[in-house]
Design a protein around this nucleic acid. Sequence first.
DNA 1: AATAGGCCCAACCGCGACGGT
DNA 2: AACCGTCGCGGTTGGGCCTAT
Length: 255
Amino acid sequence: MGRSPCCEKLGLKRGPWSKEEDYLLINYIKKNGHPNWRALPKLAGLLRCGKSCRLRWTNYLRPDIKRGNFTHQEEDTIIKLHQVLGNSWSAIAARLPGRTDNEIKNIWHTRLKKKRNESQLKETQSEPENTNVDVHLEEANNSNDKHSEISNLKINIEIQQQPSPSSSVSSSSEDSCSNTTATSSESRNQIMSDNLLEIDDDIWSEVVWAQVDDNYVDLSLMEDNYHINSSFDDNWFWDDLFTRSNELMLELPEL
DNA sequence: AATAGGCCCAACCGCGACGGT
DNA sequence: AACCGTCGCGGTTGGGCCTAT
């Protein structure tokens, strides 16, 4: 048996919203909020389903929405966030005040995906051959105060395995990105295989590049430990990294 | 000027998560 | 535990606009 429709379609209007409908919706929400989207259209005098009203409000009518073109800075932020979060548009939107997930999704598919692919192509053409070593990523100490450690931008990494010549270089496909928050063992394996280190030509240069999802961070060799240095100094990046740190398998050169 | 193709974006669809019963 | 209703999310669609020919 098929799934029942989200609302009674008969008699309900679909398609673009008129100014009158917008006015009714804004007016109602201003006075009453939106405790129940399903009941809202009837109470507001709209011939729409609740889902349509919610979408119109969250993607277009909300007063805190920033209209207009994305700035270069916003575009770069989206690309970086996408490297970490994958297709989690709502999570990306939460970090871009005034922008909606729908808007970000649209700009990604129309412009930024192409832009990202072009810059990746340039990078891969200029990068040297890589060497890989498996290690396990763990926190430097057992402190519960993660943020104090995060703010120092230093995470010690303990090497547990020897070099693995058969290791592959990480994938940067769309699919791998979408798996970053998955928790099944199959997905976890995918995450591990997708998070391999790419190393400088000279592994003793004390500066290597690790890839966390599609995001590059540089690892400095200091006193038999690697320290992660990243341009991503916002706490959200490190929160994400720590949240998944037990699942991440980086590849590092042997100390 | 006509039109084909690409781009952009608002809106829709279907699914999974979640809370209440 | 199972069921149901609701919400939010990501993927997709379709129509208007723009541009090249």
